[in-house]
Amino acid sequence: MNASAPELGWLSLLAAIALIAVPLGASSRLRLGLGRSIAVATARMVVQLALAGLYLRYLFAWNLPWLNLGWLLLMITAAALSACRNSELAWRTMLGPTFVATAVPALLVVTYVNAVVLRLDQVFEARYLVVIGGMLLGNTMSGNIIALTHFFHSAKADAGGYHFRLACGATRTEALRPLYREATRRAMRPFLATMMTLGIVSLPGMMTGQMLAGASPVDAIKYQMVIMFAIFTVLTTGVVLSLRLGSAVGFDRRGRVRGSIFEA
């Protein structure tokens, strides 16, 4: 007996894409002005996923550790770049810090998961490195966008408390501590909320996918837990590092936010 989902044909996919007509219709009816964005986002998603299907097939087939690792680094670059862009910060200045802040925890944790938790023979195996890495990166990127946006915005807009602490003898790091704290909290909260309601409100995509593909719910859930702990760890350390490294380039020697950091 085959428990897995029916094979999807092209016609079935087209039938799924047809669903987009509903949000498109809503956008036009309610004059949301999002028609173009919906069309572009749909097209991009389809093309990107198609390409992903293609490259993953080759990555899985070749399974060369250095290539897998190189691919992961490419994904990290894209995640870091997107974090800079979406927090409306100058990527030329911020890409370096954001890249390091994302890469270090992501590589460490994915290695830990593969070597210690899953006990893979080959730690950099494509199936695990690229797929798990991607899940870690997506969430860290979202966290970085929230944290960096809030941090630099409030360092500029509500400089009062920050300047007062500097005047009271604080180093830049000491003076920024409350801002670090608030930005980190804000970045962690959505994921914490997800953890709180997991299994009640939402069944995460990875788990759903695994179960649709025929895995037993218990196995899918175990993997999901592993992933959630890994994501949470990378998200937290990634955000903390991004804020620290980002403020090393985002402030001048007098402790003022550089105006150039906002010139996206």
């Binding site: 509500d158 009062g160 408390g161 007062f164 500097l166 005047a167 003898g169 409350p178």
Partner: peptide, 15 residues
């Protein structure tokens, strides 16, 4: 220089 100055701004933010 900052460590020689005590500053009380008009609007004080103390966390």
């Amino acid at each position: 220089i900052r460590r020689q100055i005590a500053w009380v701004p008009q609007t004080v933010e103390l966390g």
